[in-house]
Write a protein that binds this DNA or RNA. Sequence first.
DNA 1: CGCATGTCGAGAGTATCACTATCGATAGTG
DNA 2: CACTATCGATAGTGATACTCTCGACATGCG
Lengths: 210, 210
Amino acid sequence: MRIAELAERSGVSAASIKWYVSEGLLPAGERTGYNQTDYDDDHLARLRLIRSLVEVGGLSVAAAKDVLSAADDPDHPFGNTLGIAQASLPRVAVPPSQESLRRVADVARRQGWTVHDGNPGLVAAAVVLDRYLALGRDDLAAVLPAYARAAEVVAEADIDTISKKLDAGPATAAQTVVVGTVLGDALLAGLRRMAQESESVRRFHPGSPS
Amino acid sequence: MRIAELAERSGVSAASIKWYVSEGLLPAGERTGYNQTDYDDDHLARLRLIRSLVEVGGLSVAAAKDVLSAADDPDHPFGNTLGIAQASLPRVAVPPSQESLRRVADVARRQGWTVHDGNPGLVAAAVVLDRYLALGRDDLAAVLPAYARAAEVVAEADIDTISKKLDAGPATAAQTVVVGTVLGDALLAGLRRMAQESESVRRFHPGSPS
DNA sequence: CGCATGTCGAGAGTATCACTATCGATAGTG
DNA sequence: CACTATCGATAGTGATACTCTCGACATGCG
């Protein structure tokens, strides 16, 4: 298909498509003449993926590029793909304190987890814990064990989904990791908001109708 | 304290502090003369809160302002404070499909939740589900029940923390909601990343050392 | 064959965000 | 009484994510 059709079907303007190609997020179409380029359904799928990561996952275009390159690389280990999104976020380079890192690692240990020292999630969690403490809200840190239990439930479902895709080829498995991780955070956050409302009603307004 | 000291102690430049004041995120200090304004520890705490929401929570300054105004309003119901952050995100106004909304609501019902139709989490979750389907990844939707169970564990801990702060005054409780919700998403995402690594090692490389 | 329309990549332009810098007047400090 | 800090207002900056314009040229309808 030509760029106009790709733009129409994806909902992304032709100018933006060209820009994504030049930025390296989207492979170029096949040139069939001086001013003709042919795009196929793979390009359409890729565009949808890009838009999902950016619009729903909240990634910057640069971060989406990094994540997608990692997913595209057949030699790239799964474990790292997830971390790249985190590392690509416009995070201010404030490393967490050793104390918070230790506390989070401690929770992981109690949970029976095997977690590498440089795990980006560990760093991210420690940064959050630092903020709780800086805000004088040590009480909020008490949620850590409960959150860890919940994270384990989520991760089991995640790895379950990925393991079912391993025989569908590494590309599909990698895409599962990317989509499941980035959009999964948003999904989980949404469900959390729902559960909060429900739990809040249950505790503070018992007996009131739905 | 003067603005220079506030800047020094908060790590935010004096120019930025002035800007936050003019944007309405931070209350103005007390003018003590033509070019003298006095700030106190409340301003410092507020600045730390703003920076945490923006840097760690990923809120835009405008979104942080909305969330903080909601938290500041003594008449504002808790239940809504959480939703404001979600609604303030630079979300493209693509409403979810009825089908996805129904599916998510269905999961909530099976979980025994009482969730309002307009709950922002419900909308956010449905949007994610729509993307899964648009990407042809119906299999990813299978994680919904597991995620819902995890969300319930998290929400119980959240409401637990808030209920302990109810007698500390509505302002503290509201701040707990804001911080716990916004930073809590980041904390949970980090722990999820850790649990994923651990679960991945457990399943695919059993017996290997940590 | 003529010609409206579509397409090409390059590059310039635009909108938004989150600051940052500069200004002259003036207040406090040693 | 020199000097530094501060005031609010306003202009400027750099990053991000596009969007527009350009002239050359291909395609397809009549």
